[in-house]
Amino acid sequence: MNDALEFFIDPSRCIGCQACVQACGECDTHRGTAMIHLDYVHRPTGVQTTPVVCMHCEDPTCAKVCPADAIKQDEQGVVLSAAKPRCVACSNCVLACPFGVPKMQTSFDLMMKCDMCYDRTSIGRKPMCATVCPSGALFYGPRDYVEKFRREQPVNEFQFGAQTVRTKVNMMTAPGVKALPFDVADFLPFEALDEDPLALARAGAPDVADAAVWHELHDPKAELELICE
């Protein structure tokens, strides 16, 4: 694997075309089964989608909770899909992954997840999804290119409650954001909260990337005010 190349996800560039989903199924390590899916960023307020791939955590929770040692990390930090002989289909990894990436293939009794197209990236080629993405929402290349040509800034630190997760894959977000915070409140149904959905938007996840594109602001507080207006 070429260490100079990194993976960048920019939700604000996703156009929801699903080309990545189609291409993913062509990967030799999981032929016929797409390991990428599109999620709505904030469905109550818009139709913006974002591709969801394995973030390849530095200290993967999925591997820590696996009872069968089925999930391994290679020397470059790529977290591989479950080893076929070992996986006991317990779904621990599915429930524990902070990003909701692993999928249990119940018909196979096997967890499968994105392995960054290991057959391709291990020999210096781009992952399938990044190869076909027409808008640059999925980009695999040198960091200096991204820093030079993109207004957003790559972040690979995420805060899930008390848990800080550092990842190999970068998320493009507003300049000045050091770590993306996620809170259960971001995903609660608005009907239950009896509040204006827009009032819940705040600097950070999940709509900060959107803010970064439309408003060139570097101050998260000012950004928050603008979003809440």
Partner: peptide, 8 residues
């Protein structure tokens, strides 16, 4: 012969 297996 399996490209996926050969890679991993």
């Amino acid at each position: 012969t399996d490209a996926g297996e050969r890679a991993t």
